[in-house]
């Protein structure tokens, strides 16, 4: 099953490489990964999506917790949560395609953020499935380049991951 694990860790050199190294060293899977400092500049928040059965996920969280740089973590998929990912796409937009691409973007509630006579650059946020659906809807003929940030997540309701 797919899990989203959110990690608060020391914002120090080498911390990220320990997390990434752990995944390859122990044969765990990384599907997406993103990391940035938080409002507290001494802390980074890292979100990783991974796939595994309960035993593997238990090992992943335990091994992550064991890393000295990791302060706290939560498996967001254990409770109600919100996940978001952002996508930037460069799309061929000439002739009849121009209107079609614009319409599709609007349907998915994305924005066109850069325009040339032949290209639209589109920004879209949502969960991973929505982004996949958008890419499918555009079709590979029009798609020139895609960048995705990887999933970020936060728990719904009162639950907070902080010190």
């Amino acid at each position: 099953m797919r899990h989203i694990i959110s990690v608060l860790m020391e914002n120090e050199a080498g911390a990220l490489s320990r997390v990434v190294g752990l995944f390859s060293q122990r044969n765990f899977n990384i599907e997406t990964l993103n990391v940035a400092p938080t409002d507290d500049p001494t802390l980074s928040r890292l979100t990783v999506t991974t796939v595994g059965d309960d035993r593997v996920i238990e090992q992943i969280t335990k091994q992550l917790n064991k890393l000295i740089d990791v302060v706290k973590l939560v498996d967001l998929t254990e409770g109600q949560h919100i996940e978001r990912e952002m996508l930037l796409a460069k799309v061929k937009a000439v002739g009849a395609q121009r209107a079609e691409v614009k319409r599709t973007t609007e349907i998915f509630r994305g924005q066109i953020i850069d325009v040339t006579p032949s290209i639209y650059t589109i920004q879209l946020a949502g969960d991973a499935e929505k982004l996949d659906a958008f890419i499918n809807a555009l079709g590979s003929n029009t798609l020139l380049e895609v960048v995705r940030t990887g999933v970020s997540g936060i728990a719904r309701g009162e639950k907070v991951l902080s010190l």
């Binding site: 035993r55 238990e58 090992q59 335990k62 091994q63 917790n65 064991k66």
Partner: peptide, 8 residues
């Protein structure tokens, strides 16, 4: 003493 040893 190491939680990750348990159930590994």
């Amino acid at each position: 003493v190491d939680p990750s040893s348990i159930g590994k």
